[in-house]
Amino acid sequence: MTYNFAFLDEDTKRMLRRALLKAVAIPGYQVPFGSREMPLPYGWGTGGIQVTAALLGPDDVLKVIDQGADDTTNAVNIRRFFARVAGVATTEHTVDATLIQTRHRIPETSLREDQILVFQVPEPEPLRTLEPREAETRTLHALADYGLMHVKLYEDIAQYGHIATSYDYPVLVDGRYLTSPSPIPKFDNPKMDQSPALMLFGAGREKRLYAIPPYTSVESLAFEDHPFEIQRWEHHCELCGSRESYLDEVVVDDRGSRMFVCSDTDFCSGRRAEAQA
């Protein structure tokens, strides 16, 4: 059996590309699109793979990560899926990829202008937990009426003494639209600001996509006396020794021993290879 190149029919890709162009033209604005049924369940990255499918060309090199790792189920499946339906080359090396689909992380290696990062987004609306009415959140976006978002940050400080939101930390894109960065750790937020790579976001179940074009300002919200801060660890990666990367805490045996390792597997193995050379 043969599929159309990259699974989606050409009309659907055209619809997606038009929506993506609009998203790039209005940084941070959520563009509705006709999300299709995909051969995997909602919440597994249906938004991300539709965006990827609309962008892939025969010469692209695809990398897929899940929580920073290339070897987790979700990442492996999506990578294989595109290898089969588009026949594109795939890689685990960030520097070799032209298109990176990601769930919950931005690679540690700095991205370039000729790379595109595609995010899988479960909930594109950052105001949703505070305001359940879609008509109202759209109005709030239209009027840039974002005091509500600070209510959530206020609550964090009131309850925990600091802004405890540690992932999906709200950002203001291009000084205009309040945007969800998808559930990446806030550690990755600064990488979005003035990023040379194009960043695209797809939410399949919610039928929304949005974009942060290259070299766009991305500001993490905060209070004057409680500025934005990223996570820090007292540990370094036990495999590569990195002190700059985002660390996962892994339980390694039944006695509760644990170790801290880089969440970005490509970054970690690259450093180890360098150290051996």
């Binding site: 206020y154 609550e155 209070f223």
Partner: peptide
């Protein structure tokens, strides 16, 4: 949200950003 956030919400809507 807490009583304090309820009172402070309108101030934050007006742009006050000092916790």
């Amino acid at each position: 949200v807490s009583a304090g956030a309820n009172v402070a919400e309108r101030l934050m809507a007006l742009g006050m950003r000092n916790y």
